[in-house]
């Protein structure tokens, strides 16, 4: 079997606030291979978001190791993590998190501007990403002129335009109605079919079933890993 894209070994995360220790994650061992579609589920406060933050290099583990694409990333500096995150990770957030003052094109282009990429190449990639999600015709619109579903499709375009190693989706349908939610999930499915590696946090069992592998967390620990029933 090939090396995993992501490997967490004995990862632990402890938050210290006002002398109170909160063990958000404890002894986490996870591997995600290239091309996998993994869902992470669990009750509120089980550590899903913390795990996603560590996976996305937004946070660092208190203990343990994290290898991403054959690179140890657990102890990188802020600037180094930003660079790796920009190239390897694509985020899809529950509340879309588009920047209101930028139009659709500029929002999608944003992560590419941090790579020092030439304008022509950026344009090409952004256009391709927007076409992929069916939003190319709204490139000049502001986020406030889009529906929730459309905004989330733009957010997906932003996440994929940099061709990251992995897409991390945190409750991507949480702010959408069922119809739009289905549409977004179909989009993710298409991306997976095209070879994208996806790790998704979700409460919704319907959407969790889209993933091939399920990881269940409880009180900061992995209590179950299962494969989807085909």
């Amino acid at each position: 079997m090939s090396q995993p894209l992501i490997k967490l070994e004995t990862v632990k995360k402890v938050f210290l606030t006002d002398e109170v220790e909160t063990h958000a994650l404890d002894n986490i061992n996870i591997e995600i291979h290239r091309g996998e579609y993994v869902s992470i589920a669990g009750p509120s406060g089980c550590g899903k978001s913390t795990l996603l933050s560590i996976l996305g290099l937004l946070d660092t583990p208190t203990e343990g190791t994290y290898t991403l694409n054959d690179q140890a990333v657990a102890k990188l500096s802020l600037a180094q993590r930003a660079r790796v995150r920009n190239r390897e990770v694509g985020f899809i957030f529950q509340s879309f998190n588009l920047i209101g003052d930028l139009n659709v094109f500029e929002n999608v282009e944003l992560p590419l501007t941090y790579r020092g990429m030439r304008a022509a190449e950026r344009k090409q990639r952004v256009t391709a990403a927007l076409e992929r999600v069916g939003m190319a015709h709204r490139a000049k619109h502001l986020p406030s002129q889009l529906s929730g579903g459309q905004q989330q499709r733009v957010a997906v375009a932003r996440a994929v335009c940099g061709e990251p190693s992995i897409l991390l989706a945190d409750e991507p349908t949480g702010n959408l109605d069922s119809k739009n939610g289905e549409a977004v999930m179909d989009l993710l499915k298409e991306l997976h079919m095209s070879g994208a590696t996806i790790c998704m946090v979700t409460h919704d069992a319907r959407y969790a079933s889209h993933a091939a592998r399920h990881i269940h967390l409880f009180d900061g620990r992995v209590v179950e890993e299962s494969l989807a029933v085909v």
Binding site: A79, A82, R85, N86, R87, N97, L110, Y114, R115
Partner: peptide, 16 residues
């Protein structure tokens, strides 16, 4: 703050 957090999440370096 949210926007800046987003930009950092998308890979903006602190200097940027």
């Amino acid at each position: 703050t949210r926007e800046i957090g987003l930009r950092l999440a998308l890979g903006a370096a602190p200097a940027a």
